[in-house]
């Protein structure tokens, strides 16, 4: 593989012990990256969208803590 970058390979490929758990989820139609925090909560890391208005949405602001609530769906 060819990596065309300015950064040192040692810096890029060094593995850290404390690896945060990051998952990808779609919240209200927008793809976001979530990082696992303490107490079963997740914080919004990054919004992945080309729509500039998605970045202004208050419910998708980076750093915001969210919780997943299990719901039983009845058919």
């Amino acid at each position: 593989m060819i990596h065309y970058t300015l950064m040192d390979p040692q810096l890029i490929w060094a593995s850290e012990d404390d690896i945060p758990v990051i998952i990808e989820k779609t919240i209200k139609g927008v793809q976001v990256l979530l990082r696992e925090e303490e107490g079963e909560t997740w914080s919004i890391q990054r919004v992945i969208s080309t729509n500039p208005n998605d970045y202004l949405r208050s419910e998708l602001q980076p750093g915001l803590r969210i919780k997943f609530i299990p719901v039983i769906l009845k058919n």
Partner: peptide, 25 residues
């Protein structure tokens, strides 16, 4: 925020461009 629709979208290329290999976190 007023719900307005823009006709210009924005793509941000930040940090490293990740390709065939997943990079360390």
């Amino acid at each position: 925020i007023p719900d307005m629709k823009g006709n210009i979208h924005c793509l941000t290329i930040v940090g490293q461009v990740e390709g065939h290999l997943i990079m360390p976190p």
